[in-house]
Amino acid sequence: MLDGLARPGRGRIVKNRLKVLRAERDWSQQDLAQRLEVSRQSVNAIETGRYDPSLPLAFRIAALFDMPIEAIFTPD
């Protein structure tokens, strides 16, 4: 059950290319976190699929990489 608390809403997984996009720019998780003004834990949780960002944060991520949201986040 604790597992479910850490990642609720199982079965509605959204995949993302955050790790690849970050690696292409040679950014660490901390670098990306600072650019997005979130914690490194947030970046880590999003990258590993344990947390799906809200729409406002998804828009910020898309704006940072200068890409449309659907090019970064895709339904599983």
């Binding site: 608390l5 609720p8 834990q41 947390y51 809200s54």
Partner: peptide, 16 residues
């Protein structure tokens, strides 16, 4: 808390 993930975690912890 402005960081939505940390806020989410705190909410889940308090619910537990």
């Amino acid at each position: 808390e402005d960081d939505e993930f940390l806020r989410h975690r705190a909410t889940m912890a308090s619910l537990f």
